[in-house]
Design a protein around this nucleic acid. Structure first.
Lengths: 205, 205
DNA sequence: TGTACATCAGTGAACGCGCGTTCACTGATGTAC
DNA sequence: TGTACATCAGTGAACGCGCGTTCACTGATGTAC
């Protein structure tokens, strides 16, 4: 049993070494641009070894995307008590995620390939986008209720406006123009966006 | 002279046939995914003929992008008289452009390739994004002035909010998840966005 | 008008290269007895 | 304890294939005289 366990541990470490290298290389250069030779070299194994752990190159990419998505899901961040700060935390987490070069690189890699990665695209939508959509609407609804806002029917519009400006400031420039935002300035940006957003959606009373 | 002219006309028509096929195929499948063989077949020529009109495959892509950008620039749409409608027209044109499958497909193709297409990405930024940024800020500044708004210092924030929600509703879903918006509903979407935006930025008086 | 030649858009077939994948093999680490 | 054998992670080298690009050539359309 101990032999088997030892071998399994070894195998897991090789496997995760491959995925770690793959995640970095795919994010940096894209799926097609990374050869199995380069990937194997970065992971410290031979190309043939890749095929002991994964059926083909595409499956490595799939595993990386899955890992990313499940990481994001599990990072339901620490939440503050009052609803005001909960929305702020959520917005900051969203902006931070969409400013992460690794995340954006992998998103770009998924966007790049069409045929093959449509399955990955679906996972990104339902498990990435879908979850944030729900979270934002939940927090906003709570916030509007707490302020007796008359706009409770337009929660989704409010959510789209907030997420839109965050995406416009982080994901889009990086994705389209390779402009990396200064992540130190994210909190200030988020505060400014939320402040402006509040003037529209939170009664001033 | 007439022979030369005739030949030039012929050549132009072949050239534009190639670019037309390329624009469609690259938008639909991406740059790497379209082989010169497929491209030549779609254009009705042989692969060798491609190389009479373009030095290499990448230059064909570059020519397509250039054509797209200059088309966009030249479509400074018809403008209404009153400043309210001018912003609406601009927003609608923006949303319409970012919902065009051909445009989004080419944007995706540019985003996909990194090394080679960074030059194309720059053109997209300065001549695509940059021009819209200026136009939006100009119209918004005029609008705020017309309403004696006290927010004249935050024109760029106002612009980012408006463009953000438009992008969130058109470009992003299509780019990331292949969700094609119903273009017939664009005017309603734009009106709703503008209406909500106005409540924040235009004094209600 | 007729004939030899020049020009040039266009092409089919071949070339070379890089890449994903597989194969036959190695060697370390165990077990059987 | 020693020896023959089993297991299995790991690999170098080769295979095949697709693709971008180029080459030698064709044939239509003109000009020179």
């Amino acid at each position: 049993v101990s032999l088997q366990a030892f071998r399994e541990t070894q195998a897991q470490s090789k496997r995760s070494a491959i995925m770690q290298a793959a995640s970095r290389l795919f994010a940096e250069h894209g799926f097609r641009e990374v050869s199995t030779a380069a990937l194997a070299a970065a992971a410290g194994v031979s190309t043939a070894t890749l095929y002991r752990y994964f059926p083909d190159k595409e499956s490595i990419f799939g595993a990386v995307i899955d890992e990313l998505v499940s990481d994001v899901i599990q990072t339901r961040a620490v939440r503050s008590e009052d609803s005001e700060n909960r929305l702020r935390d959520l917005a900051l987490r969203y902006a931070d995620l969409l400013s992460d070069p690794l995340v954006v690189g992998l998103i770009r890699a998924v966007v790049a390939d069409r045929g093959n990665s449509s399955a990955f695209g679906e996972r990104l939508e339902t498990q990435g986008n879908g979850i944030f959509e729900k979270e934002f609407e939940t927090e906003i609804r709570a916030l509007l209720k707490a302020h007796n806002s008359p706009e409770l029917d337009h929660v989704s519009q409010a959510s789209r406006e907030l997420r839109g400006v965050l995406e416009h400031n982080t994901l889009l420039p990086e994705l389209l123009f390779h402009v990396q935002p200064d992540r130190g300035e994210l909190p200030a940006m988020v505060d400014q966006a939320l402040d402006s957003w509040s003037r529209r959606w939170i009664p001033s009373s």
